Amino acid sequence: MSDTSRATDARRAMPQSLIALRNICVFLARTPTSAFGLIVLGVLIFTAIFAPLIATHDPYVQDLQNTLAPPDAAHFFGTDELGRDIFSRLVHGSRITLTIISLVTVVVGPIGLFMGTVAGYFGGRVDTVLMRITDIFLSFPSLILSLAFVAALGPSLNNAIIAISLTAWPPIARLARAETMTFRKADYIAAARLQGASPARIIWKSIVPMCLPSVMIRLTLNMATVILTAAGLGFLGLGAQPPMPEWGAMIATGRRYMIDSWWLVTFPGLAILSVSLAFNLLGDGLRDALDPKQMMKR
Rank of each mutant, 00 (worst) to 15 (best):
84 R>H: 11
84 R>Y: 11
284 D>M: 13
255 R>Y: 14
89 R>D: 12
160 A>W: 03
224 A>S: 13
209 P>F: 00
228 L>H: 15
23 N>A: 15
26 V>R: 12
209 P>M: 00
225 T>Y: 11
50 F>K: 04
176 A>I: 03
110 P>M: 09
140 F>Q: 09
271 A>Y: 04
172 I>Q: 05
20 A>I: 09
153 L>S: 15
280 N>F: 05
291 D>M: 06
217 I>N: 11
244 M>D: 14
249 A>C: 01
103 L>I: 09
167 T>I: 08
146 S>W: 04
255 R>I: 05
95 R>I: 15
136 I>Y: 00
239 G>S: 00
202 I>G: 09
294 Q>G: 03
94 S>Y: 05
277 L>E: 06
85 D>V: 08
5 S>R: 13
227 I>F: 13
93 G>R: 08
204 W>M: 03
159 N>D: 15
261 S>W: 12
244 M>E: 10
145 L>W: 01
212 L>G: 01
100 I>G: 03
36 F>V: 00
249 A>G: 04
236 L>G: 04
247 W>C: 00
107 V>D: 07
49 I>F: 03
229 T>R: 02
53 L>T: 00
13 A>D: 02
25 C>F: 07
116 G>Y: 14
11 R>I: 04
16 Q>Y: 11
26 V>Q: 04
103 L>E: 02
78 G>W: 13
202 I>C: 14
83 G>W: 14
66 N>D: 13
29 A>M: 13
121 Y>R: 09
142 S>R: 01
250 M>R: 12
90 L>I: 05
227 I>K: 12
265 V>T: 13
276 S>D: 15
252 A>E: 02
183 F>W: 08
239 G>L: 01
92 H>P: 14
65 Q>P: 07
72 D>V: 06
61 V>E: 12
240 A>N: 10
45 I>E: 07
243 P>D: 01
167 T>S: 07
277 L>V: 13
226 V>A: 05
132 R>M: 08
230 A>K: 02
157 L>N: 07
118 V>L: 11
168 A>V: 00
283 G>I: 08
199 P>E: 13
12 R>E: 10
49 I>R: 05
